[in-house]
C-alpha cells in the first residue's frame, strides 16, 4: 500500500536518522512511502506568530503538491508539521472562513481532503499492533523505556483516548517486547521551541522530564518528535554539570527502536548521530 510522506525540515538535517529509520520501518510494515515532490517548510511556530493564514497557506501548498501526485494519505513524523497539515486541511474545508484566502494565496481552485497521519497513529491504526508484532524478529525483552509523547501529539489529530495519559505509544513499545514504564511526564512540553531564544527555560524543562524518566526506572526515553529528541539528547551535557551524577539517558526515536526489534544491527539504526549513545542498553 502507498502512503505519502512529508518529512519536514528537521528530518533533512538534525533528525536525519529519524528520516532514514522511518523510511525503513514503513517499508518493513508493508507500505510504500512516496515523498511529496518539492515540499516546502510548514513555517513552524514563527509563521504562526505572524499570521494564521500564512501558516495555513504554507501547509495548504504541500497538500496541493501531494494532490498532484495523486496521494490520498500523508505521513509526517514531526508532530509540528503534522499538526500544521491538519490545520491547513481544516482551513480548506468548505465551511472554513479561511478557505477563500488560502486558495487565493496558493493559486489553487480547490484541494481535496486526505488522511493525515503521524508515525504513532500510522503504526497504531494503519499497520496495527498485531501486524507490527508480526514484524518483530528480535524482541526487546527486559528493556524498560519511558514513552515520551511530547506536547504536540496530544492535538485532536492523533485522537488519543486519554490526553493526560495516552497509551498508544506504550502499546507499541510493549508490542516490541519492551516494558513501557508508567510515568507522569509523558506529555510534558520540553520547550524545544525556546531552545535558541531562552536556554534557561529548556534546561529546566528538559531536566524535569529526564529526572521523571530516571525516577520511573527507565533506561532510555522513546521520542516521536525531532525537536524533543534533539533537545533532550543534546542538553544533558549542560544539565550534568550541575548534577552529582550524569543523567546518561539515551533518547531513542521510536523508528530506531522498531528497526532494532525488526532485526537491524545497532550500527544500522543511526545512533552515531546521538550525543548520548544507547549502545550499552542494546548490548545487555
Amino acid at each position: 500500500m502507498q502512503i505519502g510522506y512529508f518529512p519536514g525540515c528537521s528530518l533533512t538535517s538534525t533528525a536525519r536518522e529519524y528520516d532514514a529509520t522511518v523510511r525503513q520501518v514503513v517499508q518493513n510494515c508493508g507500505f510504500e512511502l512516496v515523498e511529496i515532490d518539492d515540499w516546502n517548510c510548514c513555517g513552524a511556530s514563527p509563521a504562526d506568530a505572524v499570521s494564521q493564514e500564512l501558516v495555513l497557506a504554507l501547509s495548504a501548498k504541500n497538500l496541493a503538491k501531494a494532490q498532484r501526485q495523486g496521494l490520498t494519505s500523508i505521513l509526517s513524523p514531526c508532530p509540528a508539521c503534522h499538526s500544521h497539515l491538519l490545520q491547513a486541511q481544516q482551513g480548506l474545508a468548505e465551511t472554513s472562513p479561511h478557505r477563500r484566502r488560502i486558495l487565493e494565496l496558493i493559486h489553487e481552485a480547490s484541494v481535496p481532503a486526505v488522511t493525515l497521519r503521524h508515525l504513532v497513529d500510522f503504526l497504531y491504526r494503519d499497520v496495527g499492533i498485531d501486524k507490527l508484532k508480526a514484524t518483530v524478529v528480535k524482541p526487546l525483552t527486559g528493556m524498560t523505556l519511558a514513552s515520551y509523547y511530547g506536547c504536540l501529539t496530544r492535538l485532536k489529530a492523533i485522537d488519543m483516548e486519554d490526553r493526560e495519559n495516552p497509551a498508544m505509544l506504550d502499546e507499541i513499545i510493549a508490542a516490541l517486547g519492551a516494558t513501557a514504564v508508567d510515568w507522569p511526564h509523558k506529555t510534558e512540553c520540553c520547550g524545544a521551541g525556546l531552545a535558541i531564544t531562552s536556554t534557561q527555560t529548556v534546561l529546566r524543562l528538559a531536566g524535569d522530564i529526564l529526572a521523571g524518566a530516571r525516577s520511573a526506572g527507565a533506561q532510555a526515553l522513546v521520542a516521536v518528535c525531532p525537536l524533543c529528541q534533539a533537545n533532550l539528547d543534546m542538553r544533558q551535557a549542560e544539565l550534568d554539570r550541575k548534577r552529582p551524577c550524569p543523567f546518561n539517558l539515551p533518547v531513542i526515536y521510536l523508528s530506531q527502536l522498531i528497526l532494532i526489534a525488526q532485526g537491524k544491527s545497532f550500527n544500522e539504526a543511526g545512533f552515531d548521530k546521538h550525543l548520548i549513545s544507547p549502545r550499552s542498553i542494546f548490548q545487555q
Binding site: N40, C41, S45, P46, V50, L58
Partner: peptide, 15 residues
C-alpha cells in the same frame, strides 16, 4: 528569531 526563521524559508523554501 521568528524573523530570521521566516527569512530562511522565504529564501530557500525550507529552513
Amino acid at each position: 528569531f521568528n524573523r530570521i526563521f521566516l527569512d530562511s524559508i522565504r529564501k530557500h523554501g525550507r529552513v
